[in-house]
């Protein structure tokens, strides 16, 4: 930072000098906004990776599911794993189905309802996972500029107070204070803009994943209900 050293004799206006010259409130605002920006990008990276992974898992599971493999077999391979998305819904439904049949369920309607409930609960848990932390993106996106603006207003207020004290309206006296104050708004915008963009993209992605899960759940529920009917008929015929 040689420039800083050279320019310090007159009036240093580099980024670091601007930050150091700022008052306590403005500094806090800037640091907070910087933290918000770090958090935003952390969420963005995390969501990007997890959504990609989820989509890939959905594709793989659907491929396996519609490949004609028997559901029992699929359940056996999946049940000892940590599952997410469609696989989790499938495992939850199959577990409920197994429990009910092992104990010899009487009512087909009650069984159908229990399986649907189990799938709904799993689906809600999964969607919650997808939408987690998107709320903080929204908050940063909408509040970031205001927080920056707050820092700017405080900074400009301070610099006007300094003008009143020095009795000079020379632009050279006013300029550093205003530049430093505007830095707060700049950081606020830097944090807010990616947050808004990411929020819009990830809510849309999460919505797509949820729709996909719902579609699968409905389809699987139909398959299971057909199975229940078949089993009940065979059981009645045997009796």
């Amino acid at each position: 930072m040689e420039q800083v050293g050279l320019a310090a004799a007159t009036h240093d206006v580099s980024l670091w000098a601007l930050f150091m010259q700022a008052g306590l409130v403005v500094k806090l605002v800037m640091i907070g906004l910087l933290g918000a920006s770090v958090w935003t990008w952390a969420i963005v990276i995390d969501k990007y990776l997890s959504f990609n992974k989820a989509r890939r898992q959905f594709d793989q599971f659907e491929q396996v599911f519609w490949s004609g493999q028997s559901l029992e077999e699929l359940y056996r391979t999946l049940s000892d794993r940590q599952n997410g998305g469609l696989a989790a819904i499938f495992v939850a439904a199959m577990r409920e189905w197994k429990k009910s049949f092992e104990r010899g369920a009487r009512s087909p309607i009650g069984l159908q309802m229990r399986i649907d409930r189990a799938m709904d609960v799993t689906m809600a848990r999964e969607s919650e996972g997808y939408e987690a932390r998107l709320g903080s993106l929204a908050t940063i996106g909408s509040a970031g500029p205001f927080i920056g603006l707050f820092g700017t207003v405080v900074g400009i207020m301070t610099s006007f107070q300094a003008i009143a004290g020095s009795q000079s309206t020379n632009l050279a006296v006013v300029a550093p204070g205003i530049a430093e104050a505007l830095l707060a708004t700049a950081i606020g915008l830097v944090a807010a803009i990616p947050a808004v963009v990411a929020y819009n993209k990830f809510t849309a992605d999460a919505g797509k994943l949820s729709a996909r899960m719902e579609g699968f759940a409905d389809e699987f529920s139909a398959i299971l209900s057909r199975q229940i009917d078949e089993k009940l008929q065979t059981r009645q015929a045997a009796q």
Binding site: S37, V38, W39, W41, A42, D46, L49
Partner: peptide, 12 residues
């Protein structure tokens, strides 16, 4: 999440 937070901090 921890990994992405670290990544983000490093990028910043």
């Amino acid at each position: 999440m921890k990994a992405s937070l670290t990544t983000s901090a490093i990028i910043h």
